[in-house]
């Protein structure tokens, strides 16, 4: 049992309240991703769970135990930092074994556990190197190794992939997902990248302005965004959102939305008519930017590279049942 339960969690820095009451239940073994724009409070929330930051009010339970005021080391957590926080003066071996050595465990036990972790993470060949002699992906693995060796109930990840290049990031996403499958431990993962959230999470928590906007499985959030913010945040390119008169004309109370991939284009006829402003060709598909009459800017995504050219007049329609209205 290693559920993480947050109840009425709040945090203020002086007069500024950055976490405005968060209630959340992360089930045991779940891969939970906190996602949101910068400044939404996701990192602060993670740091409060770790104990590095103290909440102003509210309660944190890990594995059924109230750890609200416990020291970080007593919470059964391990954390992987954005910068990896590897000790530059220590070898990979010493980095991984550092926590055990602080706890003054016998040398033989440390060596045995380090060897075991190194085997799991395929770091055996690098044990005597210093961190600066490692590649980005290897450093990442050492940072994970340092967490695994603590045998925690919960892993905390603070934007661990943001320092890697695109190719390596894709590879590490897969490695982390596999690691989670193998260990079956609860993981809480913070990122600003909705692609990471969508691809890795069992459960996504979308945060905005210190509050939870929505909690749900990735496809849940994609199909049924609870708020316009979630609708706009999840999915790429962003959902087309319209407010006010325009939205009301389309049958919404205040906001109307349609995803670019749910807009069909035709040369003959459709709900909206507009002029093509700009075309981004990505190979497999193309993003068409349209200025639609009575609607404003509209983005559509079409497969392949169908011949749309700037200046051309096109007709667009939403796919039935994929529109969202608030």
């Amino acid at each position: 049992m290693s559920d993480v339960v947050l109840k009425g969690l709040r945090k203020s820095f002086g007069a500024l309240e950055v976490i405005k009451g968060v209630d959340l239940h992360v089930a045991s073994g779940e891969f939970c991703v906190f996602v949101g724009p910068s400044g939404c409070g996701k990192s602060t929330l993670l740091r409060m769970i770790s104990g590095l930051e103290e909440q102003t009010s509210g309660m944190i339970e890990i594995g059924g135990r109230d750890v609200s005021r416990a020291e970080p080391k007593d919470r059964g957590i391990a954390m992987v930092f954005q910068s990896y926080a590897l000790y530059p003066h220590l070898t990979v071996r010493e980095n991984i074994g550092f926590g055990l050595s602080l706890a003054r465990r016998p040398k033989a036990e440390i060596a045995e556990k380090v060897a075991e972790v190194a085997r799991v993470l395929q770091l055996e060949d690098y044990l005597d190197r210093k961190p600066k002699a490692l590649s980005g992906g290897q450093r990442q693995r050492v940072a994970i190794g340092r967490s695994i060796i603590r045998d925690p109930q919960v892993f905390l990840f603070d934007e661990p992939l943001s320092n890697l290049d695109a190719a390596l990031r894709a590879q590490m996403r897969i490695e982390l997902t596999e690691l989670h499958a193998r260990l079956g431990t609860t993981m809480i993962y913070v990122t600003h990248d909705q692609v990471e959230a969508m691809t890795m999470a069992d459960k996504i928590v979308v945060l905005n302005g210190g509050r939870i906007e929505q909690v749900g499985a990735p496809m849940d959030l994609y199909d049924n965004p609870a708020t316009p913010f979630v609708a706009g945040f999840i999915g790429s390119p962003k959902m087309n959102l319209y407010e006010g008169e325009t939205a009301r004309a389309l049958g919404a109370g205040s906001v109307y939305g349609i995803r670019p991939e749910h807009v069909t284009l035709s040369e003959s006829g459709g709900l909206w008519t507009g002029t093509v402003r700009h075309v981004e060709r990505l190979g497999a598909d193309s993003i068409i930017h349209i200025e639609a009459t009575g609607l404003g800017p509209l983005v559509a995504r079409v497969e392949g590279h169908r011949a749309f050219a700037p200046g051309q007049i096109v007709h667009a329609s939403p796919i039935d049942g994929r529109e969202v209205r608030y």
Partner: peptide, 18 residues
């Protein structure tokens, strides 16, 4: 010196002196 290093050690259970 990045604060992350201190915090990693805090999570590892280091005392201030350690």
């Amino acid at each position: 010196i990045p604060r992350d290093l201190d915090e990693a050690a805090i999570i590892d259970g280091g005392t201030p002196l350690q």
